[in-house]
Simulated scan of single mutants.
Amino acid sequence: MKDKRNIDRLLDIMAQLRTPVSGCPWDLEQNFASIAPYTIEEAYEVADAIARNDLTELRDELGDLLLQVVFHSRMAEEEGHFDFEQVAGAVSDKMIRRHPHVFGADGSDTPEKVKISWEAIKAEERATKQQDDSALSGVAVALPALSRAEKLSKRAARVGFTWAEASQVFRDLDEELDELRAEIDAGSNPDRLEDELGDVLFTVANLARMLDVDPEKALRRTNRKFEMRFRAMEQKFKDGGRDLKDCRLDEMDACWDSVKGVENAS
């Protein structure tokens, strides 16, 4: 096995893991649905390694993500649907089809022209696969909710259902916030609060689209910033011999502002 190309070696390893009786009991009991959460998790870990600019970790995480593709492909092969070779062939065909400016005579010579051509080709592909003719057809349900909101609004915008400029979104955002406040003041049940908060988040996703900002990336950045500041605040109190849970809120607020001040100065 060591003399084989690594991709063939990986395929053989997965085949052995999935071999009845002699294979791995855990691997043998898995199916597409049970493995899907791991696939999503590995994709996020790839993104995390990139965000940290850890290229050694990125290599390892890309391997873990590749394993997910091999795992799904092996299960599909066992059921007679397709195998890894067909997966690789299908995506190769797709890349050639979507890059006529490289592999054909399209003539697109700027990133803007390429993007227009790419979207047109993707629309043609969706038309051959989708079961309805909605402008929203084909937006994956399993996407993170914030990303899916941005993609749904982007599809709607392509047919003209959008604001003329980003500043107009704030009017609707204010309305949604007022509706959420009203539900809170009325002591509404969690279902009503969830509904109204969802409207606020969907409007924010629209604002991100109009500002050409990836909402998932923006929120991940803020999460990292919050974690860094919170840990710095914890450390300041720890250096003073105090535990955060024993501190007053006004003390924590003052320390938080101090941490932000040092961060901004640097």
Rank of each mutant, 00 (worst) to 15 (best):
E77V: 04
E42A: 07
A47N: 08
I121F: 05
A47E: 15
P37D: 12
P37K: 11
Q16C: 05
G107C: 08
S137N: 07
A47L: 10
R98C: 03
D48S: 10
A88I: 07
Q30K: 15
E61V: 00
E45D: 14
E85K: 09
E85L: 08
E61R: 01
E85D: 14
G23P: 02
I96G: 02
D133R: 02
L17T: 00
E79M: 03
R59A: 11
A43R: 05
P20C: 10
G63A: 14
G89Y: 12
R74K: 12
P20S: 11
L62T: 03
G63P: 09
W118Q: 11
A123T: 08
S137P: 09
H101N: 13
D109T: 07
L62Y: 10
D48E: 15
N31V: 07
F84Y: 15
Q16W: 06
I35F: 12
S92E: 15
H72R: 01
V70H: 03
F84H: 07
D60S: 04
F71E: 01
H101R: 07
A47C: 13
M95W: 01
S108K: 02
Q86W: 12
Y38W: 13
T56L: 10
H99R: 12
R98N: 04
L28G: 13
G138A: 00
E41M: 02
W118E: 07
S34L: 00
Q131N: 04
S137K: 05
D64I: 02
A135N: 01
